[in-house]
């Protein structure tokens, strides 16, 4: 996983609530067995509309998505995170995220930032007024800054440490393999196996 410390970039405002992961990447794109090429599927149904905000030339190259409440609800497909990253997004800012999407994001190094709805709307308005506006997201300081303003956000220390170091979760867990073995020795005898 690529480490995330500070990122500065331009943003796209997506003024819609309840953007579920079926919208982020429709199911037909999920048939691939590789981990690459999902950027073509990102919002693929909505991108057919020339007026869709991602098609606006003013927002080309943006790396921060300013989303509405309940972004990433629904299906657990991590492909939604891969599609956003492979399209070029490093950060999604929203008032609230679907739990599984948010979790998947932190496993992959896509930073989900929760800010109050009023602040996200201010950011969206600022970017609509000036698409070239640069926004800085500092994970170490847990702060988003733009045009002389800034807002703090919360993220737990452990996830922040893992993201800023770019650490592999499985490697971290396997450091505790002895604990797992000890736990397994105490499992209840009636628990089923699939064999």
């Amino acid at each position: 996983m690529e480490a995330f410390t500070v990122h500065t970039g331009r943003a796209v405002p997506l003024r819609r609530s309840n953007v579920d992961t079926d919208q982020i990447i429709p199911a037909v794109w999920l048939k691939q067995v590789s981990r690459t090429g999902f950027e073509k599927g990102l919002f693929s149904a909505w991108r057919e509309d020339p007026d869709f905000v991602l098609n606006d030339p003013a927002h080309q190259g943006a790396s921060i998505l300013l989303a509405g409440p309940d972004f990433g609800t629904g299906s657990s497909r991590e492909h939604a995170v891969w599609a956003l990253q492979q399209y070029g997004f490093r950060v999604v800012i929203a008032p609230r995220f679907g739990d599984i999407f948010r979790n998947n994001s932190t496993k992959m190094g896509l930073l989900p930032v929760v800010l109050p709805a009023s602040v996200v709307e201010d950011l969206q308005s600022a970017v609509e007024t000036d698409p070239a506006l640069e926004i800085t997201v500092d994970l170490r300081e847990r702060r988003v800054s733009w045009a002389g303003r800034s807002a703090g956000f919360e993220i737990d220390d452990y996830t922040r440490w893992r993201l800023t170091e770019g650490l592999d979760d499985i490697g971290l867990t396997l450091r505790n393999a002895d604990d797992i073995g000890a736990y397994e020795n105490g499992r209840q005898p009636w628990l089923p196996t699939t064999v």
């Binding site: 991590e78 995170v81 998947n104 979760d169 499985i170 867990t173 797992i180």
Partner: peptide, 11 residues
């Protein structure tokens, strides 16, 4: 998600 599927398979 798939990262966690891998995590459970491994650990």
């Amino acid at each position: 998600g798939t990262s966690e599927v891998e995590h459970v398979l491994a650990t």
